[in-house]
Design a protein around this nucleic acid. Sequence first.
DNA 1: CGAACGAAGTGAATCGTTTCAATCCGGGTG
DNA 2: CACCCGGATTGAAACGATTCACTTCGTTCG
Lengths: 336, 336
Amino acid sequence: MTVSVKDVAQLAGVSVGTVSNVLNRPERVAPATLQRVNEAITKLGFVRNAAASQLRAGLSRSVGLVVLDSANPFFTDLARGAEDHAASMGISVLVGNSGEDPAREATYLDLFEEQRVRGVMLSPVGDITARLERLRGRGIAAVLVDRHTRNTAFSSVSVDDVVGGQLAAGHLASLGRKDIAFVGGPMHIRQVADRLEGARMALAEAGLPEPRVIEVPSMTLLSGREVGRELARAPESERPDAIFAANDMLGLGLMQGLLMGSGLRIPEDIALIGYDDIAFAESAMVPMSSIRQDAADLGSRAMELLLEEAASGDGYEHRQVVTEPTLVVRASTRPA
Amino acid sequence: MTVSVKDVAQLAGVSVGTVSNVLNRPERVAPATLQRVNEAITKLGFVRNAAASQLRAGLSRSVGLVVLDSANPFFTDLARGAEDHAASMGISVLVGNSGEDPAREATYLDLFEEQRVRGVMLSPVGDITARLERLRGRGIAAVLVDRHTRNTAFSSVSVDDVVGGQLAAGHLASLGRKDIAFVGGPMHIRQVADRLEGARMALAEAGLPEPRVIEVPSMTLLSGREVGRELARAPESERPDAIFAANDMLGLGLMQGLLMGSGLRIPEDIALIGYDDIAFAESAMVPMSSIRQDAADLGSRAMELLLEEAASGDGYEHRQVVTEPTLVVRASTRPA
DNA sequence: CGAACGAAGTGAATCGTTTCAATCCGGGTG
DNA sequence: CACCCGGATTGAAACGATTCACTTCGTTCG
């Protein structure tokens, strides 16, 4: 029923060892033989059995990836970057979605362990240091994503949110705006706090006063719209002349609230910049400036670290890569 | 280095066959033995080697899924539905993203074939009937997604766009609107044509005239905004009193164009309904009604068909499942 | 001319699990 | 007391590719 190397060998009149060589190290096979074997392969429709191959080889040609939320474009881009890099090395990626649920995360790690993947890449939900140590004991490398770890026991990649905050606030300052508001929250989220800290640093450097901070319970369109409406109603003297929204959803909501039914103009009356650079930022009523985190690049670099660690032996020196986000200027902060 | 069933057997003082039974049919093992083996397993940290297991079993415990665009929420939801259903059967899903590229699609199918997956589920890019026939010859089932096939050689699941069009237009008619416009395009896209056809049917049934059709080159925010602006500028007598947008992006653009700088109100002056029910529809300036395709359900049912076909033998009778979308009413079509 | 060499190819052993025919054993039956 | 039954367990074969020590054979070189 199924076609194996043995059948191919028989038809081509060579040994199974030679067929294996054709499959894995064709350069060591004489051209004539190579052709004969390849013909037999296509004629029989032979397809290598990955299970048998992996069993003997001891390791698979795949790595695992667990993301927090597969509906979030950030993670789909990240996965794409990781897959592309892996594919270029002939490695395939098994993607699992934890949905922020530690149980599902654990299930996927179990699966990956059974598969004897080369390594796992994940944005952890709970504290899984112990679990990862165990994997490492099995020779499975692990790289953390998007969570800054002071823990140097693991390699990690993340984006520097302080720099992102500096870029955003610095840009507003460079437009000559003096009264800058930061909208975001809740403050205990590290990313939000870091972005605010970056903003503070940039303003201090520009000799401007502290930003006013408008804290919101969640960073959604709705929260933003509410804050936007309030600001639009406030007398001009009390309105900031620029706003830094801690993410794009919030920023888009702010834009709606500011523009709806008021005569305000963006950026003439108020400049506005968001964070994340989601697809909708570009197609907003006024195309919105933002801070872009190159998720695909992040994924690609994480995969690079992972494969590097997997390829090297025990004494691998773990690395923490922190990438810098970039400023994307659009109409919402472009001087007329 | 690695722990195998043999080690477990030794520590527990049983044979390897018994360990295998503990792993796969625990009910056939005496309770005392069961416990002893399980203790040995945890003590040694044994994890089954999937490659060896699959090799012997002949088939893997996974299925493949190739989606057209992993950035599209429709497909991430679809994948989630498929994964959930598969997980409940102890099957894992390998997800590949073709990005509408036939070459990448082929690469993933190769990979799945090597993995000896139980089946593949895919929204095909090119014509891959031949390829799928070959897979079937290998005992790998295939189910098509989201492309209506008259081809009864394969099972498929899809959403009935004609019904969706009827729902949308029928809803507008039920509000008492008389002059209804359909905005969408290009018309050669089957989904668009079907939605329009459904709309025509619903209006005819309600005794209303044909919808006016405004064709757009692409269904983007921008196209919508442009059309919306034109409509807002037109004299009231020439404006439709309701619009059916062939997808939500277009609908959101229309909303922006209609509201910006005009005194128009939605739904009082113009009712508006979209299609797809993307997340942004709910948080638009005026929450927008839409037609929801339950992608997760679609994925789940496709997986059901797939596993069913994979489990049954050759003479499987293929089924074409067409699901019906549902109407989601929000403020943009809600009578004040 | 014979030894040494290297390229090409061979084939048995191996990876870890599952399967299945065979064995074991305690207890019920005639 | 011999026999049988069936649940529990055993252990060797099998899955298919890869590896590696070994053979073959045509060349080259002293």
